[in-house]
């Protein structure tokens, strides 16, 4: 199977065209936050949440493993008028290429579930905490077994294909979390959970860094 970023490089244009709207959970997390100096979007993809960050941060750092998605994110940032403060960085969520405590505000949304194995997922939460630092505030989300399309009580590894307009299916690795397991991974990491909730088939944690 291809690496997950190779998959997103291939499907970038089609993915971006269908993933433009911010998630309501992210919008409400960010409401009344800021202004801050720096926000980091880990797994920023095509930048669907970057504009929300740009409205409240002096600089937005978008990290993604897919170079093609970053090119889309940058073009959208320029078009929307925040290209000057948007910095696209190609990097791995498992070992972030950023200094300690640089982010006052962070998102790590719909990305953690693409990493494997579990030790790497937990390590990536440590990395998110490191970049947030003790004062930074972040939102983490993963796909959950509570979503309608799954029929399982416990977390599991699976392949969820992306279907391109020509019908070609491109397999993507996911670890679908159960809520207790997500809580356990957050607790085992350097992230300090302030709030946890489930919404629309995803598990969320609001965290402070370390």
């Amino acid at each position: 199977m291809e690496r997950i970023y190779e998959v997103y490089d291939r499907i970038a244009d089609h993915f971006a065209a269908t993933r433009a709207t911010p998630w309501p959970e992210v919008t409400s997390f960010l409401a009344n936050r800021g202004p801050v100096a720096c926000a980091v979007d880990v797994g920023c993809g095509n930048g669907r949440h970057s504009e929300l960050l740009a409205e409240r941060a002096g600089q937005v750092v978008g990290v993604d493993a897919s170079g093609e998605l970053l090119v889309v994110a940058r073009a959208d940032a320029v078009e929307a008028g925040y290209g000057g403060i948007f910095a696209p960085i190609r990097g791995d969520a498992g070992t972030l290429p950023l200094a300690d405590a640089v982010a006052d505000l962070g998102l790590y949304v719909a990305t953690l579930h693409h990493l494997r194995p579990r030790a790497r997922r937990r390590g990536s939460l440590d990395e998110f905490a490191r970049v947030l630092g003790p004062d930074g505030l972040g939102l983490v989300s993963v796909w959950s077994v509570t979503h309608d399309r799954f029929d399982a009580a416990e977390g599991f590894d699976t392949i969820v294909p992306w279907t391109l307009p020509d019908g070609e299916q491109v397999p993507r690795f996911y670890h679908i979390y159960d809520p207790a397991e997500f809580s356990a991974d957050i607790s085992a990491s350097a992230c300090r959970a302030i709030d946890r909730f489930e919404s629309s088939g995803n598990c969320y944690a609001v965290v402070r860094g370390a």
Binding site: L70, I89, R90, G91, D92, T95
Partner: peptide, 10 residues
């Protein structure tokens, strides 16, 4: 214009 800071094995 985009720095590629993926670790070498990726």
């Amino acid at each position: 214009g985009i720095p590629n800071l993926l670790p070498p094995d990726m």
